[in-house]
Design a protein around this nucleic acid. Structure first.
Length: 605
RNA sequence: GCGCCCGUAGCUCAGUUGGAUAGAGCAUGGGAUUUCUAAUCCCAGGGUCACAGGUUCGAGUCCUGUCGGGCGUACCA
């Protein structure tokens, strides 16, 4: 049951009827008006409010309250809503959900595997491109936002009924491999490589990059890189040459590349396993390499691209602005070339309606140009969306780095989150009387809470702005954090365990009888639970998982208030059944909601 | 220089696409546990929504300008 949809349908009918009666202009039943039905900001105004009368008043040439009254006269509230009272203020039409209806919605949702969420009416084919790490470097904190946000969007859109394909567009072919190849040939440590291949490749990458970039402030802190830079003045060019040789098919470089790939893949897979993230496809940049030449040829032939200063580019923003380069003067291809080849391949093989690119906001200009180029090329019949997000900053407000200036490794980050969570679990256990939790369970809870906290911090704050990474805040275990909601679920579970209540028979019983809510705290919780479908609508509208986190936080808050004030197991009769229904549905909505965010939910804490 | 994003409580952030008295958490002060997990709940104080205009029944939200910050800006990804 989707209350807001239902209400919009009711208003749409009322607007048509009022228009037919001549109370309001003929074109008053358009969609943008029925969208002016939304939840109230304050319970004293009822549950939902419609603001259609005010904009219509001008068109109708009548006072807004008179228009509101005309709409109310035509409104058939049906089985779910009470008939509206007279308009309020400038012309708000406020509606309240019938108490019996709310009871029925909760009972039905509790017994429904979809928890009352209807599938979308017209499913889309959606490709989501996210994570996309550079496999030559160890994953760091910068990768987590794309990975976590993309994974959550994939789960949510699939649950809504879309046909979702996820694809990890690995950076496995770029200049970074030139650095590794050069480093391998000049600076490798064979025993270190045998011992831990990715650590050694990572070391080579960092060393060569610093030496090649030759930034004085970096070299000052790294004598080895400084020495290397001094010994090889043409290093930056040599590195590019290694990359060029790889791209041209040089046998030695290809063989080395092929031997590096499996260890790099194993490294990132370990992280994905721990994050419970998986992809339908992992078609990295190297996969598109065979097509790049023909892509450039085709774009040249169609006169979409042309030569400029020795390179080949597409002038998406006119002659004066920098073009999108697709081939360098030295003949090498760029990531724009790969991105265009990727769009063509996906359109040919997957035929998506939409492609979401979950990538750092710093690349917005690049994507704008790539999307414009794709449209000029003839691939305009698809929604290409850059789902951008801000940079992760340290508590000093600067990009998140270790004290030595290196980026923080993702695995170390996860380890620290889990370690901190374990402290909290252990402390809480020690303070609690009664049956002690096995150590393995404490460890599993810490894993769920620690990693959940890190993921949730990213998801709940999904805006274009940068955000400040703070373990202390995300593991606060209060406020809008994963642990707060995980804890609410654990309290639900506690009730069913303690009461020895089996939920399946309860749900069967709920299907038969009627339940009702008398206490305002019960009602507030019930209404909040009924709004789950609306929260998921909002996630898709803007590709913002934070709409779901905000919703879940309100559910958990409403439940905590309810839980604190009203006994469940000690209640009797209908009251007990109604409260058990609320507990059951709260547990399911929170659990399912967190799982849609990729967050694990323990049964006790 | 040009382009994109941002500026909301002491701090970290929300703000349902233009709606009613701008909300949370942290921090500060007060209160709640013989009762289902106190990792909780309840109450209080705290705001020129950077600034100035404009649009309209109504602006934190849209438009213009100013100030401040981040990012990008031709052969890295």
């Amino acid at each position: 049951m989707h209350l807001r949809h239902e209400l919009r349908r009711i208003f749409s009918a009322a607007l048509s009827a009022a228009a037919a009666a001549g109370d309001i202009p003929d074109d008053s039943d358009d969609l943008s008006l029925t969208e002016m039905v939304r939840a109230t900001t304050d319970a004293k105004f009822g549950d939902y409010t419609a603001t259609v009368a005010m904009p219509l008043a001008k068109r109708a040439g009548k006072p807004p309250r008179q228009v509101a009254e005309a709409i109310i006269a035509k409104l058939e509230p049906g089985e779910w809503f009470d008939a509206p009272q007279a308009p309020v203020g400038p012309g708000f039409i406020n509606l309240t959900v019938k108490n019996e209806a709310l009871g029925r919605i909760v009972a039905e949702a509790a017994a429904d595997p979809r928890l009352g969420v209807p599938p979308v009416e017209t499913p889309s084919r959606i490709v989501i491109d996210y994570s996309s790490p550079n496999v030559a470097k160890p994953m760091h904190v910068g990768h987590i936002r794309s990975t976590v946000i993309g994974d959550a969007l994939a789960r949510i859109l699939a649950f809504r009924g879309h046909e979702v394909t996820t694809d990890n567009h690995l950076g496995d072919w770029g200049t970074q491999f030139g650095m590794i190849l050069w480093g391998w040939k000049h600076c490798r440590n064979d025993t270190a490589y045998a011992d831990n291949p990715t650590a050694e490749l990572g070391r080579l990458y960092r060393l060569v990059r610093k030496a090649a970039d030759a930034k004085p402030e970096e070299l000052a802190n790294d004598p080895e890189a400084a020495e290397l830079a001094a010994a090889h003045p043409t290093l930056a060019r040599d590195v590019l040459q290694e990359t060029a040789r790889l791209h041209e098919g040089d046998e030695e470089n290809r063989t080395l590349w092929a031997s590096f790939m499996p260890v790099c893949q194993a490294e990132i897979d370990r992280v994905y396993t721990r994050l419970h993230v998986h992809f339908d496809h992992t078609l990295g940049e190297s996969f598109y390499q065979p097509f790049l030449g023909e892509v450039v040829e085709e774009l040249l032939a169609k006169e979409i691209a042309r030569e400029s200063r020795g390179a080949i580019g597409i002038f998406t923003d006119g002659e004066e602005k920098p073009p999108l380069l697709i081939r360098k003067a030295d003949g090498a291809f760029l990531y724009a070339t790969t991105d265009l080849a990727t769009i063509r391949w996906r359109m040919q093989h997957w035929k998506p309606d939409r492609v979401l690119y979950v990538v750092d906001h710093r690349q917005s200009q690049h994507f704008r140009q790539v999307f414009a180029a794709a449209e000029a090329w003839g691939y305009g019949d698809v929604d290409l969306v850059h789902v951008a997000f801000g940079t992760v900053l340290g508590e000093d407000g600067r990009p998140f780095k270790t004290r030595a200036g290196d980026t923080v490794g993702l695995e170390a980050l996860l380890d620290e989150g889990v370690a901190r969570a374990l402290e909290v679990v252990a402390t809480s256990q020690a303070a609690r009387a009664g049956d002690a939790m096995p150590v393995e369970e404490q460890q599993a809870i810490a894993e769920a809470v620690g990693i959940g906290a890190i993921k949730y911090a990213d998801l709940s704050q999904n805006r274009a702005t940068d955000y400040v990474f703070s373990f202390d805040k995300m593991l606060e275990l209060k406020g809008n954090t994963a642990a707060y909601m995980q804890y609410a679920v654990a309290r639900v579970e506690g009730i069913f365990t303690k009461g020895g209540i089996d939920r399946e028979p309860l749900r069967e019983q709920l299907k038969q009888g009627e339940i009702s809510f008398s206490d305002p705290r019960e009602r507030a919780l019930a209404l909040q639970l009924a709004r789950f479908p609306e929260a998921l609508d909002e996630v898709e509208a803007d590709y913002r998982p934070s709409s779901l986190t905000a919703y879940l936080y309100e559910v958990a808050g409403a439940y905590s208030t309810f839980y604190d004030a009203l006994p469940v197991l000690k209640a009797e009769g209908h009251e007990r059944t109604a409260r058990l229904a609320l507990c059951d549905l709260t547990g399911q909505v929170l659990r399912h909601g967190l799982e849609l965010l990729g967050i694990t939910v323990p049964t006790r804490m």
